[in-house]
């Protein structure tokens, strides 16, 4: 086993353990961790079975096999970021609805004592 293989296997394992620990401590929701976990496991597989990179490179006609690694890192980062944008938009909507609801309730709570022209009680 080469030095780089040992380093990459340890690195991948640490990455996976860090994710699992974060979920265990409730710092990370399972739903949001799945993409990270998949990324970690793929890294682990590539570290253990180095022939995999060459096979994929051959398959896609990529001359410089390690470029697969960069491509893979980039793609997973983009997918995770895209997921974040979706979550962000959803939360944006939720915050908006909560804000409006809070304003309506506050108005209702204060409004009882107010007397406005032309307004039925």
């Amino acid at each position: 086993m080469s030095a780089i293989q040992i380093i990459s296997i340890t690195g991948s394992l640490f990455f996976i353990l860090a994710i699992i620990q974060a979920i265990r401590l409730k710092r990370l929701k399972e739903a949001y961790a799945l993409l990270w976990l998949i990324t970690g496991f793929i890294f682990l597989v590539i570290s253990c079975w180095q022939g995999a990179i060459d096979i994929i490179a051959d398959l896609f006609g990529i001359v410089y096999a390690p470029a697969i690694l960069f491509l893979f890192m980039l793609v997973s980062a983009i997918i995770v970021l895209f997921q974040y944008s979706i979550i962000l938009s959803k939360q944006n909507d939720q915050i908006k609805n909560l804000t409006q609801e809070l304003a309506l309730l506050k108005n209702k709570a204060q409004g009882c004592s107010k007397d406005l022209p032309n307004k039925e009680s």
Binding site: T99, A103, K106, N107, G111, K114, D115, L116, P117
Partner: peptide, 11 residues
Amino acid sequence: TGKADVLDLPC
């Protein structure tokens, strides 16, 4: 003004 109802958005 006492003539309008007010919705105060917290954000």
